[in-house]
Every structure is written in structure tokens, then in C-alpha cells.
Design a protein around this nucleic acid. Sequence first.
DNA 1: GCAAATGTATTGCTACACCG
DNA 2: CGGTGTAGCAATACATTTGC
Length: 295
Amino acid sequence: MFKVRQLEAFHAVMVAGTVTGAAVRLGLSQPAISTLIAGLESDLGFSLFVREKSRLQPTEEAKYLHGAVVGALQGLDGIAQLAADIRDAKAGSLRIAALPMLALEFLPRVAAHFLRDYPGVNVTLQARSSPTVVTLVTTQQFDIGFSETAYDPGWVDAEKLRLRCVCVLPAQHPLAGKDVIRPADLSGLPIVTAPRDHIRTQRLQELFAENGATLSIKVETPLFASMCAFVAEGVGYSIVDPVTAHDFSGRGLVARRFEPAFFNDFAMLFPAGKPRSLVTQAFVRLVAEFLKDYD
DNA sequence: GCAAATGTATTGCTACACCG
DNA sequence: CGGTGTAGCAATACATTTGC
């Protein structure tokens, strides 16, 4: 079977017209080209050149074959280019499943930025509940998952993340003038929060109790975005993650620092034990960069 | 089971001869 | 003199064997 090197030599001779010229093109010695051509002819079983007056003249068969060789070499160039793109994480695919808090606006923002640097990458982003996100990652249907911290550590690799929550208020709310909001400021005021049995609501209740304040639950709704929408309509205040608060700022809602610190924990999930692609690694770095803005 | 040693194939070089 | 072809050599890569 002939070799790629022989095809390269053949192409170089066809283009340069002489073996010596082909050697220069390929950065080889002249004998090397000569040997390659001889080997190719031997492998093919017919002559590519007739030796006339110590010069090579391509045969009709050589001219006929040359077109196919050019196509094959271009194909190899394509493979080399694609390999380089993969190596530089410029090509590939990225499948992300995330809880709505991040999937609605934050991750599209990160992904859009990512795609400017990695235009060859195809992105899939799906908003799912945390248990579904975990399933999609453990079954390797997705490369990255963002979920709340309830997952089985045996089936996924996880990087825990936490964001400091902020207090969101209707823009015209009397407390909107304060820079820092404390439980005592909010005692007895109507809150829009996650359902009562949610761990975050329970922790919030404990925090208020510790600070001698009363948590007065007015609306229960599972999504941060829904909470913000209620707040923007003037229904009450809420304690939400800073990403969603940022997404809603300017829509009739203001965000203020909340003390003492109250964190929303979540995690970045990866299929367990599976090597992460260069594309995945690059995206994770960008997510970390974007999350820094919310500290 | 692993590393060192050995054998083999490939590659590309230089030197040299031949041709027009 | 420039182009082509062959022989021989060294470096390298790879596979297999040997020794611990």
C-alpha cells in the first residue's frame, strides 16, 4: 500500500516539474523524493513518469491520478486543521443542562461570550429541574450540569459553588433607600419565597429566628425568577441569588446587600470519571470568571 | 510486571556516477 | 552545470526478547 509521504512527493513533483524542485518544496533531499516516487510506482504497479533525457515527464495515468491525489491531500489537510481546532478547543460540542436560575439568562450570557472565542463549537443548553440535571449528567447525555447540591457523589463529579444572596425589593419600597438590609428590617413584612418545605426556606426561617425577626411568608414559588417577578409587581420582598436579581434589576426591582450572609449553594456536575474535553474545560473557566462578578 | 537489551524496518542523509 | 539515480551510512522508531 502506498504512503501519504509518497503522495505528497508525487504531488510536489507534478507541481514543481522536477524532482529537485519537489525536494525543495517538501524540505527533503532530492534522493528522498526519488526514492518515494519509485516506491509509489512500485506500489501502484504502473509508471507515473517516463524518464526522457534525464527529465521526468508525467504519463497520462499520472495526470489522471493527480486529481484524486490532490483531493486526498486536501482531505488530510482538513483532518489536520480539524485536529488543530480540537486541540485548541476551537471545535466540538458542549451540552449543558442547568437549573432555570442559571439557564434562563446567566448561562446564555456566558455561552454567547464563549462562542465569540470558540466559533466552531456547537452549544446545547437546556433548563431542567435539579434532579433531571443530575440524571442527564450521570447518563452522559450532557457534558456539564448545574444543579442544587442534592446529588449522589458516586455518579457525578461535582464542583460546589455558592453565591451570596441579596435582598430584592420593589423599587419604590421604603427599605430601597438602605444599602444593607437585615432580618430585623424585614420582620413581619411579606416575603416571596421558595415553598416552606424547601431547605432554603427552612434555613431562612432559622436565620430570621436567630436574629429575633419574623419570616412572614406571603407567596411560595419554586423559581428565583418567579420570586423576582412577584417582587417587581410589589407583592413583597425576597431573598434571591444575585444572578437572578441582576437579571431583573431595572424591571421595577432593586437588589440590596443582605446581612448576615445567606448563601445559595449549587454545583457544577460532570459525568463521573470521564475526562473533560478541552471545550468543557474552557467553558468552566469562563463560568468561574463570570461568577466572580457576583461575589 | 517492568525495564533493559536486542533485532528490524524506515527514513533521510551524503557521496558518487551518469546523462544531456 | 543541473538534474536524476544508486549505494551506503546513521539516526530513529517500533516490536520482540531477555533478565530481574
